[in-house]
Design a protein around this nucleic acid. Structure first.
Lengths: 169, 169
DNA sequence: CCGTGGTGGTTGCACACGCAAGGACTTACC
DNA sequence: GGTAAGTCCTTGCGTGTGCAACCACCACGG
C-alpha cells in the first residue's frame, strides 16, 4: 500500500502544511544558492558572496561602503568580510580606502575592474534569479512572500527597534 | 569614458516586489538558521546539521539510513556526510553498520543515546521553528509557501512525472 | 591631560565543507 | 568467466567562515 501522506504522529509534530513550508524553505534556499553560485562561478569565476559584496558597493554612494556596513548587509562576520575583501583586493575588484572622519574605519571601494566585472555578472545573476525563482511565482505570491519575510525577520539590520528611517547604524 | 549607468534593459534590476521576495528569502533563511542553530547549540550542544541528520534517521525504518540517502536528504556532499557521521559516532549518537545486500554500502544507525538526544533537541527545535517562522504566518500563507517551494525545487528526489520538455535529471 | 569604556578592523586558530582521487564492491557486457 | 564501467564510501587537500584576542582609535569623564 502506498502511503500517500505520512500520518502526523508523534514522530512528525510538524503537520504536512508546516513541514512543506519549513523544509521547502531550507531546500529551496540551498538549491537556489547552489545553482546560482555555480552559474556565477562558471560564467565569471565569481562566488555568490563576492557578487553580493560588489552589488551592495555598486549601489552605495561613491561605490564605496564601510566595512562594518558591508558585513552586515551580506550577513557575514567582520573577519569573514576582511578575508573576502582581501581576496577581492588581490583580484583588483575593490580597493581599500581609509576613512577621514574616523581613522579606525575603512572603506571598501569598487574599482573600475570591479564595476565592469559586476556589470557582466549582474546579467547572469539576475537571469538566474528570475529563471529559477521569480518566474515560478505570480506577482501576488512575490508580494505575499515579501510581506512574510518582513514579519519573519527580526529587524533588518540587527538594530533593535529600528525606526522607519531605515539605516540606523 | 563609458556610461556607468546600466540602462534597465534585458538584465533589468529587480523591482521592489521582486527584491523583497528574493532578498527576503536570503535574509530570512540566514536569520532563521543562525537563530535555530544557536538555540540548539546552547541547549543541547547540537549544530543544526547534526539535528537534521538525527531527525531523518529517526524517521527512517529501523532508525537507519544509507549514507548516500542521508547525504542527499540533508543536502550535503558525501565527504561532508562521512565527516559528520564520524563526529556523531565519536559522540556516540550514531553507529555505522555494514549493509548485507551491498557490501559497498554502509548504514548510519541511531543509537539509544542518539534517540534520547534527538528527543530532547526536537522540542527545542520545533519550538524555535514555530516561534520564529511558522507563527509569523497564517495557515494559508504556509500552504501557499509549500506550493511555491514545490514549483521552485527542481525535482525533490526523483524525476518521475516530468513533463515533456522538462530537463529530466 | 590622562584613563576608561566602546567601536572598527585585522589576525590566530579551529572547524565544516567540497572536490578530486583512491579502494572496495557491484553490475553489465562480451 | 572475465574485463570494463559505474557506485558507495573514505581520505588528502584547499578554502571559506566564525570566534576570540588584539591593536588602533573615538568619546567621555575625571
Amino acid at each position: 500500500m502506498a502511503t500517500v501522506e505520512p500520518p502526523p504522529s508523534a514522530s512528525a509534530p510538524l503537520d504536512g502544511r508546516e513541514l512543506r513550508a519549513w523544509r521547502g524553505l531550507l531546500r529551496a534556499h540551498a538549491s537556489l544558492c547552489k545553482a546560482l553560485d555555480a552559474e556565477l562561478e562558471a560564467a565569471h569565476g565569481l562566488p555568490l558572496t563576492t557578487y553580493e559584496v560588489l552589488m551592495y558597493m555598486h549601489d552605495a554612494p561613491s561605490r564605496k561602503m564601510r566595512m562594518c556596513d558591508l558585513a552586515e548587509s551580506i550577513l557575514l562576520s567582520r573577519s569573514g568580510l576582511t578575508r573576502l575583501i582581501d581576496r577581492l583586493q588581490r583580484d583588483g575588484l575593490v580597493a581599500r580606502q581609509s576613512c577621514d572622519s574616523d581613522a579606525r574605519g575603512a572603506y571598501a571601494v569598487l574599482t573600475e575592474a570591479g564595476v565592469r566585472t559586476l556589470d557582466e555578472a549582474r546579467a547572469t545573476h539576475l537571469a538566474g534569479v528570475r529563471r529559477l525563482f521569480l518566474e515560478k511565482l505570480t506577482a501576488e505570491e512575490q508580494e505575499l512572500l515579501g510581506d512574510a519575510w518582513e514579519r519573519v525577520l527580526p529587524a533588518p539590520g540587527g538594530c533593535a527597534g529600528a525606526t522607519p528611517g531605515d539605516d540606523c547604524c
